[in-house]
Design a protein around this nucleic acid. Sequence first.
DNA 1: CCCGTTGTTGACTGATCGTTCCTAAACTCG
DNA 2: CGAGTTTAGGAACGATCAGTCAACAACGGG
Lengths: 132, 132
Amino acid sequence: MGRPRAFDEATAVASAAALFASRAYDGISVDDLVNHLGVHRNSLYQTFGSKRGLYLRALRWHLDEQVRPALRRNATFDNGLDFLLLAATERAPADPEVATEITRILAEFDEALTAPATSALLGDHLRARLSR
Amino acid sequence: MGRPRAFDEATAVASAAALFASRAYDGISVDDLVNHLGVHRNSLYQTFGSKRGLYLRALRWHLDEQVRPALRRNATFDNGLDFLLLAATERAPADPEVATEITRILAEFDEALTAPATSALLGDHLRARLSR
DNA sequence: CCCGTTGTTGACTGATCGTTCCTAAACTCG
DNA sequence: CGAGTTTAGGAACGATCAGTCAACAACGGG
C-alpha cells in the first residue's frame, strides 16, 4: 500500500551506473544524480540510503549485469569496463567494500582468462578510454 | 629583493605529487595540501595560481623526474606509476591538459617498449595498486 | 635607516557539498 | 469516503569547498 513509485528502481540504478562510469566519485554530486536520473533527491535517499549506497548498488549492477555475462560468453566488453576501471583505480583504495568487489571480479577474470590476459585487457581499456 | 621564501618549491611540488598520486583530484582539498606540504594556503596560491595549477606542476614533475628517467633506463617503476595511472583514468577525461600529457607519455612508452607491452605494464600496475 | 617589494598569516567569502525535515499527494484497505 | 501508509517535492541544514583580502614581517637597495 502507500503511494506508488514514480520511477523504476532498476532503470535508476542502470542510469546511475552510466554516470558513475564517466567521472570520479567525488566529481559527481547528488544534484548531478538527481538531474541525470530524473528522480528527486528524497526518493534517492529513501531508496538507496546515501550517495555511497547508490554507488555500491550501481557498481554491483554493473558487475552482475554487464561484466560477468560478457565474461561468461567470452564476448567483447566494448565500453562496458569503464565503471570497473574507474572503481578499481579511484574508489577501491578509499572504500573497502569497493575493494572487495573489485578484488573478487578480477579473480574471476583470472580464472576465465589468465592473469596476464586480465592485465592486458585492463591496460587496453584504459588506453581506449583516453581516445573517447 | 623582498622577503625570502620559507619553503622549497621543488620539495613542495614533489610532496604534492605524492599526495595527488594517492587519491582522486576531487578527494584532495586545498586544506589537505596545506597540511601535507606544510606550506600555507596563500603561499600555494601565490606560487602555483590554483589547485589545478599545482596539480599540473606536480603531474609534469612526476612524468619528467620519475617516469621518463625510469623509462630511459629500462628500470622498474615500483610505485612510480600511481600518479600517471590515476591521472589517466580519473583526470584526463575531465581536463584536456592532463589528457595531452598522458597521451604524450603513453606514446613515449609505445616507442620505448611496444603498445601491447605498455598495456600490460599499465594493467599490472593497476592490479598491484589494489594490493597496497 | 627607511622605502619598495615580496612572502607569510589567519580570518573570511560565496558557492556547493551530502543529508534531513516537513508538508502535500497518491495509493490500499475497511 | 475516511484511516493508514508510502512517496514526491521543495526548502533548509551545517559542513566543507576553492579561492581572496588585508595586515604584518623580512629582506635588498639607495
